[in-house]
């Protein structure tokens, strides 16, 4: 077995929140490690490191992934979006605004993950029901809100798209 910490580094290049970013990585680093430690993206959090909590969710090539289950190397030349990348000119998105109005943010630990997944759901340009949204978000855990406020926020913005 190879001794831990002896691997040479590799150069990773990605489009993170619309900007080209380059950094040196080790082969065993996850996308989660690199986002938080190399790119200082702190909206992405972790709680389990084994795919259960969903708190580390980001968009990889426009699809949701749990970043603790993705190797950083696998994202070479890919597009990555986090909450830092969804606002325009520092103005809150409609979904962020809905989260505040509905009380979908309490301690806030899960908020980055739900916002980025909600952003993905809304970008589908498809009308979803309450229970479909409930099913789509069931990979992320929130210990404070009870989910209802989160689902209602996403539903409200989704419904507005079709008015």
């Amino acid at each position: 077995m190879i001794k831990e910490g002896t691997r040479p580094t590799k150069t990773l290049s990605v489009i993170l929140n619309g900007q080209k970013r380059v950094t040196e990585i080790q082969s065993n680093e996850t996308l989660l490690d690199v986002l938080r430690n190399k790119f200082q993206i702190k909206s992405v959090k972790a709680a389990c490191w084994v795919g259960d909590c969903g708190i580390c969710t980001v968009l990889l090539d426009e699809k949701p992934v749990k970043s603790c289950l993705v190797l950083a190397q696998e994202t070479m030349n890919c597009t990555i979006t986090t909450v830092e990348g969804i606002t325009h000119n520092d103005k809150l998105t409609e979904l962020q605004d809905a989260f505040i109005r509905h009380g979908a943010v309490q301690c806030g630990y899960c908020t980055g993950a739900f916002l980025i997944l909600g952003h993905y759901i809304i970008n589908q340009q498809q009308r979803f029901t309450f229970s479909e949204i409930q099913e789509m978000i069931n990979g992320i855990i929130c210990r404070c809100t009870g989910y209802l406020q989160i689902i209602e926020s996403i539903l409200e913005v989704n419904e507005k798209q079709f008015r």
């Binding site: 831990e4 080790q26 065993n28 490690d33 389990c48 490191w49």
Partner: peptide
């Protein structure tokens, strides 16, 4: 306790 395993072991990734 999985939480103590906050890093992955070393390996090389090959991408055929």
């Amino acid at each position: 306790n999985t939480i103590s395993f906050s890093t992955l072991p070393d390996f090389d990734l090959l991408t055929p």
